[in-house]
Each structure stands twice: as C-alpha cells, then as structure tokens.
Design a protein around this nucleic acid. Structure first.
Lengths: 223, 223
DNA sequence: ACCTGAACACCGTTCAAGT
DNA sequence: ACCTGAACACCGTTCAAGT
C-alpha cells in the first residue's frame, strides 16, 4: 500500500518539477521524457499538461528552482568581494551538481532566477564602488562569466562521465596535440595534472574583480 | 534541367554541413531535420548517414566550420590587446549571425575550433606578458567570457526575433520590475535605451584585460 | 563505394472521455 | 477542476535492396 500513496497526493506543478529534476540529475537529460514522468508520478499525460505548459516550461522551471535555491544559500560576508566569491561558487556548485542547467541557460536567459542573480551581483559591485553608469556592463560581464564557465565545466564533466574518461585522460589528449599547431596547449597539458577546476573558476572571478576595480572602482584614476 | 544538377554532384560531408548551416541560419534550429536535409539535397537518409555519424556530429561539424572561419578572418594587429579585441568581436559577430551555435557550445566544448581559439588567445596573452603559470587560467577565463556572453546575447536576440519584441520592449519589461525587489535592474532599465550589446561586450573584454594586466601582467607588482 | 526509401522505435502534444 | 490514456504527427536512425 505504501507504494501507492503517491496516487492519492494531489499533483502539483512543484511535485512535477521536483520529479523532473530528480530524473535529470539521476539519469541525464535524455532520460527526461513525458512518458518517464507519467511512470514516476503514476499519472497520465493530461495531468502533467494541466500543471505545466510544455516540456520547455518544465525545464525552465526546474532551472529556476535550482538557481534560486543556490542564491538563497549564499551568506553575506563582511567584504562584498567575499560575498561575490561565495555567490559565484554557490552557482558553480549548483551547475556542477545539475549539469543539464548549462544547456538550459543558452536557451532561456531571462528567467526570474537570473534577474535575482543580476540584482545580487549588482548590489555587491555597487558596494565595491562601481558607479551606476558602469554597473550594467560590469554585472553583465561577471554574471556571464560565472554562468558561462560553470556551464562549460559541467559540460566537460558530463562528457567525461559519459565516456568514462578522466581529467588525466583529458590532459593526455592535450599532450598529444600537435606541438607545432598548438604549442601553448601542448605545454599547458603538463600543468593540467595539478589543476583544480573550481580553483581556476575563482581565479577568473578575481581577475574580473581586479579589472573592475582598476577601471571602475572607487580608487580608480580619474574618479 | 538546371534544377536537377545537384543530384549529379557527388554528395560530401562538406556539402551536407553547408546545407545544414543554411537551414539553421534561415529557418532556425528546429527546422534542421534529417528529412529537411534529404529534401534540400534531393537524396536519401542513407546517403547522409554515409558521410555523417549522426545529427550531433552534423551540428558539431557546422559549429566548428563557423568558428574556424571566424578565426581565420582575424587580422593580427600591432598591439596584442587589439588582436584580442578583434578576435573577441569576430567570434561575437559569428555567434550573432549563427545563434544556434550558443546551444552547441554547451554540449561539445572541446572541438578542434575551440582548441584553435584557446591557442590564439593564449598567444596574445603571452605577448601581453602573462606568465606560463597563469596562462591557462587567464585564457580559460577570457575564452569562456567571450563564448558565454556571445551565446547569451544570441539567445536574447533569438527570443526577441521569435516573439517579435524589441530591445525597447525588453527595457520596458525591466522597468516594470518591482523596484523593491530589483532596485538596480529597475534603475538600469532607464539606461538600456542607449545600450549597444556589442559595445558592452567589448567593455567586458577590456575589464578582463585590465584585471589580467593588474594581476599577471608584465608590470604587475611582485614580478 | 555510394545511395534509396520503407520501416522501426520513440518522442511531445492533443483531446474526447471519465471522475 | 483534475485526471486518464489512446491517438496523432513527427523525429532520428537502421537496413535490406539497389547501382
């Protein structure tokens, strides 16, 4: 009997979005089909379409959910710089844990959760002394960096998981690149061994912050 | 008779990839089906699969083609900084002209054209004085910024084209945001009128270069 | 080797019918 | 209002058969 309780629960948009997220996480993007959802929730197609407009709507809602949760988990630090780092890392970790989000970000770039991210990053940059005229550019660049790199990283991880290869295998592939055509990539392969993606990600955030400070910051020349 | 000449040409991977690119550009991502390709090339499914492994392979090849062409079109400038700007803009324009590339970048991040981009960006950063230890991080961050922002931008343009709205309509939407929840976005809406996406994109590249120079550059403190 | 096109398994979505 | 599930149009891919 316990195995049938689901049927008696009222179906809701939230229940459907959660089930979709679990399928995406556990079995990958291709495993999320409307059919799989009807089985998981022991319901019919019409029931799903009663709460959700279509599959795109479902994917967008799931993405929103994950990003919103990642943002609420960020604790404000004393220094805006640290809050920004924490925000970036929280988003990085969320996208790493739910790699299907990467493809989704390229499709629906203006959902509510994205607005909250822009607003929060803008707030911290303002606290860093970035003036209003430069705020849109700076926040846009930083948010795009965060989501872009996190998405790329998740895509890499997904591919490595799919073909069973590892980071070491990736480095070996780089090492086999033609040294004449790709001299720098070839040399960089030697460094990939002691390479931490998460750390490189934060290093990029810091590069950005250094640039913002140099160009738009409180102490920048000409201000 | 002239209308049937295609049939007598030998089919090749290149011809198929070009036809796919044209369908993607002219009619959008959803319009590219294997069926549409057989009609366009007046051939059968087996002929296509003889030259191409599957649809994913086809999309990846088309992406590679466009990115590779964008890179060969970049003229080396006297200053590495200018070469980097030209590279970034060439990629931005290519992705804007072929917006379906955005979704593809999230899926197959390590194709040959991407390697060439990393190598080229790495070369310019090296010329700017970035040391070998910092080269991977810096190039990774910058390339990800370029592709990420260009992709987001193309996605926005695609959505605006799809629903017939304009940038002004987007700004109006921002202006209607709850000023209490999104104060900065609400205020920024007023600035969106005289907003040039391409210009904001270059501004982001410059922020990055300023940061790289400050942290890793030839004249950075402690070097 | 290169190509044809019917056939297969599967997909998202709809909708008349039920409660 | 909420749900069921057969049916529809369409997709990527395969493959026996042709040249």
């Amino acid at each position: 009997m316990a195995t049938r309780t689901r049927r008696t629960d009222a179906l809701s948009r939230e229940v459907i979005v959660d089930a979709a997220t679990r399928i995406l996480d556990d079995e990958g993007e291709d495993a999320l089909t409307l059919r799989a959802l009807t089985v998981r929730l022991s319901t019919g197609y019409g029931a799903l379409y009663h709460h959700v407009a279509n599959k795109g709507d479902l994917l967008a809602a799931a993405t929103d959910e994950v990003l919103a949760r990642a943002m609420t988990g960020v604790a404000a630090a004393a220094e805006p710089r640290d809050t920004l780092r924490a925000t970036a890392l929280s988003l990085f970790d969320a996208i790493t844990a739910h790699p299907w989000i990467g493809a989704q970000l390229a499709r629906e770039p203006w959902r509510p959760a994205l607005l909250a991210i822009y607003e929060s990053v803008g707030e911290q940059l303002e606290a860093l002394g970035v003036g209003e005229a430069a705020l849109v550019d700076s926040a846009g660049a930083l948010v795009n960096y965060i989501l872009g790199v996190a998405g790329q990283n998740a895509a890499n991880a997904r591919i490595q998981a799919a073909d069973g290869s590892s980071l070491a295998a990736g480095a070996e592939q780089w090492a086999q690149l033609d040294p004449l055509r790709y001299p720098r990539l070839h040399r960089a392969a030697a460094r990939l061994g002691d390479h931490d993606d998460r750390q490189q990600f934060v290093a990029g955030v810091d590069l950005f912050l250094a640039g913002i400070e140099a160009v738009h910051g409180r102490d920048a020349a000409g201000r």
